[in-house]
Amino acid sequence: MPASTDAIDQRELLALEQHLKQYGQQAEIFASQLELLENGRMEALAAVEALQGLLESDDGTVLLQIGGGASVRVKILETDKILLNIGSDVIVERTNKDAVEFLKDRITEMEASEKKVAETLEKLRAQMNEIAKRIEQGYQQAVAAEQAGRMPPVRAGREQDE
């Protein structure tokens, strides 16, 4: 990007607007990725809590929500045998402890990914701010040029036409 003190021509202004739009689209993608990761992390944390709670329960009786605010009382037959989705639609049986370990590893990975995405998003937003500033500067220069009488103001011209 050119130095901010340079004069901006209209061609550059258009290019900057295009860049800003593209960066905005990229930022939206990263923001939704961040949201997905955060949702996944929260879900995994809730699962860890539930698994640990199962081991502490007396007879494995829990409330199973069936939607619409309705629940049924169910008894978990084997609180130490957990069926765990390990990805690619494959489910394996694990002990409660192993399942918790697996989920905790996933949480750590998701946290690392979240950190990376957040950093990228932050950089992208900083670049967007820079571009927006440059565009604003360009517009101000154009307005100043108009007011200096180098060219008739666009609005005044339109009003005269009307």
Binding site: L83, D89, V90, I91, V92, E93
Partner: peptide, 8 residues
């Protein structure tokens, strides 16, 4: 090898 596994 005999571990319980499921696929969708």
């Amino acid at each position: 090898d005999d571990a319980a596994m499921y696929m969708s």
